[in-house]
C-alpha cells in the first residue's frame, strides 16, 4: 500500500518532470531565437510558426495513436503527397472545391486502408510495410504530376491555408479542435481503451474478445484521412503541390512524438506530449530558418534529438 502510493507519486514526478522539461526546452528556444533573430519574437512570426506546425500537428494525432498501439506509419509523408496532388489536380481542372477536398480525403482513406489491411490481416510488421508503401505512394506522386508542380487553384481555396478567424489562422483552429477531439477519443471512448490495450499487450486484448485486426485497420485508415486533411491545408498554404510534397514529414512527427514521451514500443505516453514535441520542432525549424540555416542542418539536430529521446526512455 505504502509502496504503491510512493511509486505512484514517483510516476507522477517523472511525468511532471518530462513535461516541465519539454516546456523548459520551448522557453529556451524562445530565449535563444529571440536573442539571435530579432524578427522571431513578433506576433506575425508566432502565428507563422503555428501555421507551419498545423499540418504536421494534424498528422501527429493518428501517428500518436499508432505509436500508442505499438505500430508505426512511415508512409505519411508520401500520403500527404498523393492526397495533396489529387486535390490539387481536381482544383486545377476546375472541379468544385468541396469535391476536390472530398476526393483528397477519400484518397487518404484508401491508401491508409491499404496499409491497414496489409498490417492487420497479413500480419507483416508495420514498419516494413510502410517503408514499401512510402516508396510506392511517392512514386505515384511523380506519376501523377510528371514531375511538374500542380498550381492555379480558385481563390476561395486559399482561405483554408491563409485565412483566419478572430486573428487565428483557420488551420491552427482546426488543429486545436482535432487535438481536443483526439484527446476525448483517447480518454473517454472505448476505442481509446482498445488502442492502449493493444499497445500494452496485444495478446491479452485478443483474449478479451476484441478484434485486434479491425482496430489496426481502422487506425491506419484514420491515419490516411487525417494526413489527407493536413495535405489540403498544406497545398492551400503553399498554393501548389509538387511531387515531393510532404516528404520527410514522418521523421519530424515520429521524433516529436518520441521526444514527447510516447514509448517507441507502444502502450504509454500522452497526446499532450506529442503536441509539445511538435511545438519544439516547429519552433526549432522556424528559428533556424530565420537564422539562415538550411533545412539539412536542422535534420542533424532532429536526428540527435530522436536518438536522445529514445535512448533516455530505455535508461
Amino acid at each position: 500500500m505504502v509502496q504503491q502510493s510512493s511509486s505512484h507519486a514517483k510516476m507522477l514526478c517523472v511525468l511532471k518532470s518530462r513535461y516541465t522539461l519539454l516546456i523548459g526546452i520551448i522557453a529556451l528556444e524562445f530565449l535563444l531565437f529571440g536573442f539571435l533573430a530579432p524578427y522571431f519574437l513578433t506576433l506575425g512570426n508566432i502565428l507563422n510558426i503555428l501555421r507551419q506546425i498545423s499540418e504536421i500537428g494534424m498528422i501527429s494525432i493518428p501517428l500518436t495513436f499508432l505509436l500508442l498501439s505499438g505500430h508505426m506509419d512511415l508512409s505519411v509523408g508520401s500520403i500527404v503527397g498523393v492526397c495533396g496532388i489529387t486535390c490539387g489536380m481536381l482544383l486545377r481542372a476546375g472541379q468544385p472545391v468541396v469535391l476536390a477536398i472530398l476526393a483528397g480525403i477519400a484518397a487518404g482513406a484508401v491508401v491508409g486502408f491499404i496499409n491497414g489491411v496489409i498490417v492487420g490481416k497479413l500480419k507483416i510488421q508495420a514498419v516494413v510495410v510502410t517503408i514499401g508503401t512510402q516508396v510506392m505512394f511517392r512514386g505515384l506522386c511523380y506519376i501523377m504530376t510528371s514531375g511538374r508542380a500542380v498550381s492555379g487553384y480558385p481563390l476561395s481555396f486559399y482561405v483554408l491555408g491563409g485565412g483566419d478567424i478572430l486573428g487565428l489562422p483557420i488551420s491552427v483552429l482546426v488543429l486545436g479542435l482535432c487535438y481536443v477531439g483526439a484527446w476525448f477519443v483517447l480518454e473517454r471512448t472505448y476505442f481509446g481503451r482498445y488502442i492502449l490495450a493493444i499497445g500494452n499487450n496485444q495478446n491479452t486484448t485478443r483474449y478479451s474478445g476484441i478484434r485486434v485486426d479491425r482496430v489496426k485497420i481502422l487506425l491506419f485508415t484514420f491515419c490516411g484521412i487525417m494526413t489527407a486533411v493536413a495535405s489540403i491545408f498544406l497545398i492551400s498554404r503553399l498554393s501548389s503541390a509538387e511531387a515531393t510534397l510532404g516528404s520527410g514529414y514522418e521523421l519530424d512527427i515520429i521524433t516529436a512524438a518520441l521526444i514527447g514521451g510516447i514509448d517507441i514500443n507502444g502502450g504509454s505516453g500522452k497526446l499532450q506530449g506529442t503536441f509539445l514535441g511538435i511545438l519544439i520542432i516547429g519552433i526549432l525549424r522556424n528559428g533556424l530558418n530565420l537564422m539562415g540555416l538550411s533545412v539539412i542542418y536542422q535534420s542533424i539536430i532532429l536526428g540527435v534529438l530522436l536518438l536522445v529521446a529514445v535512448a533516455k526512455r530505455k535508461g
Partner: peptide, 15 residues
C-alpha cells in the same frame, strides 16, 4: 517517374 512506384510495388511484392 514510374521507377519509384515500381520499386515500391516490387518491395511489397517481395514481402
Amino acid at each position: 517517374y514510374w521507377l519509384d512506384f515500381i520499386t515500391g510495388a516490387v518491395i511489397l511484392l517481395a514481402l
